[in-house]
């Protein structure tokens, strides 16, 4: 691993200032992607700013139809949280499917969303659960957050502080994991907001997206069969060793159908 300067600020302002003052800084959250990448010498930030010391990034809260997760909350904490399991069990279940147990014990939601890997699980939740992403500068609607491959609405140096998920009437997440890496080949979260259905898809395109055609079909009839004729348009499906674009598109439909079946 290349050398870098390490910082552990205790406030957001301090973190942002450090980022601005550095040549090529990176924030360190869970580090489950960043540190292996640096270890392979595929990234060499001049400064690492560890967000673990910033108290306000921690914690889980539930309030009036919302589940609020601090950015530094680890996947295992979300998966095990009684508050999340009570209010939004699908989110706990999704968190419990990320990577593997050790990765879940370190990886954090804010880091995952900032990295925005096309095959990460949380992005499906951000879209389907109508999340609001709070940063040290502003609030970003989930729908406006994912812009492209590893590309988000975050500006340089901007820090995610909290993610608020809107609690639906019911929801379900179904994932088809990559048999090697366990990332999502296709992950679909279907949320029913009393008739208004949102469908978030991850793993299938350059970034997570809402399957509007599925949403429309499910708004008509919340039934797995309703998806048979619905085709997602305007998305170039990923194609790699593990799944061609055609197979991925098929898996998205199957996962969506299974999610619908599960939530019924």
């Amino acid at each position: 691993m290349h050398s870098f300067d390490y910082h552990k600020p205790s406030t957001l302002a301090e973190a942002a200032a450090l980022h601005q003052g550095a040549e090529d800084a990176a924030y360190l959250s869970g580090g489950q992607t960043l540190l292996p990448t640096m270890n392979q010498r595929l990234a060499a930030p001049s400064d690492l700013i560890d967000l673990a010391g910033i108290g306000e990034l921690a914690g889980i809260a539930t309030a009036s139809g919302q589940v609020c997760i601090g950015a530094c909350t680890r996947h295992a904490e979300v998966a095990a949280s009684d508050a999340v399991r009570g209010a939004l069990p699908t989110l706990a279940s999704l968190a419990g499917q990320i990577g593997d147990p050790q990765v879940r014990n370190r990886g954090a939601i804010g880091g995952s969303l900032a990295n925005s890997d096309p095959a990460a699980d949380y992005p499906a939740a951000v879209l389907a659960l109508n999340a609001v992403i709070h940063t040290d500068r502003r609030e970003i609607a989930g729908d406006d957050y994912f812009l492209g491959l590893f590309e988000t609405a975050l500006e340089p140096g901007e820090i995610i502080t909290r993610i608020d998920f809107a609690v639906p009437a019911r929801a379900a997440y179904q994932k088809f994991p990559n048999p090697a890496s366990r990332f999502a080949v296709a992950g679909v979260l279907v949320a029913d907001y009393s008739g208004d259905v949102r469908v978030g898809v991850t793993g299938a395109g350059p970034c997570a997206f809402r399957a509007l055609a599925f949403e429309a079909a499910l708004a008509e009839s919340l039934d797995p069969r309703a998806l048979e004729g619905a085709d997602i348009e305007g998305v170039i499906f990923n194609s790699d060793l593990h799944a061609s674009a055609e197979y991925r598109a098929h898996l998205v439909r199957v996962m969506a159908q299974r999610a619908v079946a599960q939530l019924l």
Binding site: L48, Q102, V103, N105
Partner: peptide, 11 residues
Amino acid sequence: AVKACALLAVQ
């Protein structure tokens, strides 16, 4: 349980 290859000593 954590993977010590994905954790800095300083963490």
